[in-house]
Design a binder for these strands. Structure first.
Length: 586
RNA sequence: CGGGGUGUAGCGUAGUGGCUAGCGCGUCUGCUUUGGGAGCAGAAGACCGCAGGUUCGAGUCCUGUCACCCCGACCA
């Protein structure tokens, strides 16, 4: 029985000034966590109890799925990460350190290399596979900007699993088992979640899905179709290309002088004044905006890339980066323009783009730029635009790229309905890694023909510490936290409300009885604290059931309050233990 | 790393260049109080982020520096 009189706990009446999101504010105010350094937190007794409950649920579901737990060090040598090139590729996000001899070490940001090497060291036959191993470990990432308290720290706990199979079919089975285990885990954690596609096909088609907990403070944006099951991270949304259009009636293209048309908006209004089209007014979606990027490859190479999108949409850098990985893109700067004299900044058009053009810059367009679509676009001359510039007739791009911003109402690729946009916290990620790491470290086994084959892998993560914050984020009100029972630090928050000694004795006895039948109790046995303080603390702390031993005790009753609904009931003292036990069994 | 902001007691904060840096919460002592963050009386607790400078005088002005927070780019 946890006793408030001795519990290491100090609740705060005011929000900490450095906290922004509800989970951070409440976890600090309720005395669950304290900050040690940016993105680094200490778990206090109540917080650690919740954390351990979450960890326990994760572990038990992993074990139930037949995965085996191992535990790597957090402190790792450099060499394994050299094999996969991640010692350098990981960049500044990697915490590096040296031992006294000057040898390089790192604090593990994720453990693909270690798991792969471990299996390589032990197994060498197809008969040993499949196998799935996992660990629950502190991970370290020197994030450029930790934020939102526990939601995005530099030290955090992650459950990471890796599956090892001899072929794609086996990998699919391992992947599906993890998917099922994750569904069971998050359901038990009391989290509302959505499974979204996380990668576009352009990356090579390996399956990857994210488990997102919808909340306004989530860092991931995803789309969800209200009329079918489709859900995807914005990075993975595929745009439905319209059918090609018959452009036989479109006038021949013509170049016009368009002064003061520096912005799309200005161009559209100018066009509607001086170059009206026959059927309807021009809109921003009729302009073709061409943006040039410099793409830095992982090997240090640089190449320019031109992207054409309808003028009513921006290019979504996240989508672009996701598609280009591991290369990185940045908008063209003046210094880059100097190298391409045929480009007129602000008036770049398809004529000067593409492999065949003078610039030679690869030119990719949005899927909406179908054959027969009719555009206003740059004429590669200051203050001039082409009108009635038709795709397939007047220009041809080198290919399609789907990186324009995604908007609510855009068509679902599955059923065509307009989808909705929401935000969510990434609480889990399952991913068919394939043979990348196995190849890098040489993980091969003999198959039934005695041939060496490279193992194929899956990698699966759950943010354990993050899940605590995600639950807090989804489950609180203006008074405080509201824990789902299975993760709550106790089942019952027992309050002695009053000063009568008999009342404390009755509460004490009730607490013991509850504990004896397996009900976890947090007992507010403080004698010098007024009932109001106790009530407020109980609501802040967020244990699902609050039992008040107070003024109704004289009639043989205690009050039982549901933290979530606020519903209160008077229950006869002798029935409480039974009631609580039933409640606990659900 | 780009942009914005803030550093005053454990927490939240006030402080036109001028006396001993103020208030609330929390903490301690005593008395009172006990169904919605109690009252009275007293007490402890601050190198005003750090380093320079201007000035008779700096929490306040200037320069530098560090730290932290927020918005972006990056991620469980």
């Amino acid at each position: 029985m946890l006793r408030m009189s001795t519990l290491f706990l100090r609740t705060l009446r005011e929000d900490p000034s450095d906290a922004e999101v509800p989970s951070h504010k409440l976890l600090v105010r309720a005395g669950y966590i304290r900050r040690v350094a940016p993105g680094v937190f200490t778990w206090l007794p109540l917080g650690y109890a919740v954390y351990r409950n979450v960890e326990h649920i994760v572990r038990s579901e992993m074990n139930a799925a037949g995965f085996q737990e191992v535990h790597f060090p957090a402190l790792l040598p450099r060499e394994p990460y050299e094999l996969t090139n991640r010692w350098t590729e990981y960049g500044d996000t990697l915490f590096r350190l040296q031992d006294r001899k000057g040898a390089d070490y790192l604090l593990g940001p994720t453990h693909e290399e270690m798991f792969t090497l471990l299996v390589k060291g032990e197994y060498s036959s197809y008969k040993d596979l499949p196998i799935s191993l996992y660990q629950i470990q502190s991970k370290f990432r020197d994030e450029a900007r930790p934020r939102a308290g526990i939601l995005r720290g530099r030290e955090f706990v992650m459950k990471d699993s890796y599956s090892f199979d001899i072929d794609d079919a086996g990998l699919q089975i391992s992947y599906d088992k993890h998917r099922q285990a994750y569904i069971a885990t998050f359901a038990r954690l009391g989290l509302e979640f959505v499974i979204v596609s996380a990668m576009s096909g352009a990356m090579g088609g390996s399956a990857s899905e994210e488990f997102l907990a919808p909340t306004p403070v989530g860092e991931d944006t995803f789309v969800r179709c209200p009329s079918c099951a489709y859900a995807a991270n914005v990075e993975a949304v595929t745009t439905v290309a319209p059918l090609s259009i018959n452009a036989s009636g479109v006038p021949a293209t013509h170049k016009e002088r368009t002064p003061a048309s520096g912005t799309i908006e200005a161009l559209v209004s100018y066009s509607n004044r001086d170059f009206t089209r026959e059927d309807r007014p021009w809109s921003a979606a009729d302009t073709l905006k061409n943006v040039i990027f410099m793409v830095d490859g992982p090997d240090g190479s640089q190449s320019a890339l031109a992207i054409g999108v309808p003028g009513d949409r921006e290019i979504d850098m996240k989508r672009l980066e996701a598609l280009l990985q591991p290369s990185e893109a940045r908008p063209f700067e003046d210094a880059d323009f100097v190298k391409f004299p045929s480009l007129v900044k602000g008036y770049i058009g398809p004529n000067e783009l593409g492999a065949q053009s003078a610039s030679g810059i690869r030119y990719l367009v949005d899927p909406r730029v179908v054959d027969g679509s009719r555009w206003i676009t740059g004429a590669d001359e200051a203050a001039h635009h082409f009108y009635d510039f038709v795709a397939g007739r007047d220009f041809t791009a080198d290919g399609i790229i789907d990186v324009a911003e995604v908007r609510a109402g855009d068509a679902c690729p599955n059923c065509g309905a307009g989808f909705e946009i929401e935000r969510g916290i990434e609480i889990g990620h399952i991913f068919q890694l394939g043979r990348k790491y196995a190849e890098a470290v040489g993980l091969k086994v003999l198959d039934e023909h005695g041939e060496l084959i490279t193992v194929t892998m899956g990698s699966y993560g759950i943010g354990v510490s993050r899940a605590v914050a995600a639950i807090a984020e989804q489950s609180h009100d203006d008074k405080g936290l509201i824990w789902p029972r299975e993760v709550a630090p106790a089942d019952v928050h027992l309050i002695a409300a009053g000063k009568d000694e008999a009342l404390f004795m009755a509460a004490e006895r009730l607490g013991s009885e509850l504990e004896s039948v397996g009900v976890r109790v947090l007992y507010d046995d403080r004698t010098s604290v007024s009932p109001g303080v106790k009530f407020n603390d109980s609501e802040l702390i967020g244990i699902p059931t609050i039992v008040i031993v107070g003024k109704r005790l004289a009639d043989g009753f205690v009050e039982v309050k549901n933290r979530r609904t606020g519903e209160r009931r008077d229950i006869a003292l002798e029935d409480v233990v039974n009631e609580m036990r039933i409640l606990n069994e659900r």
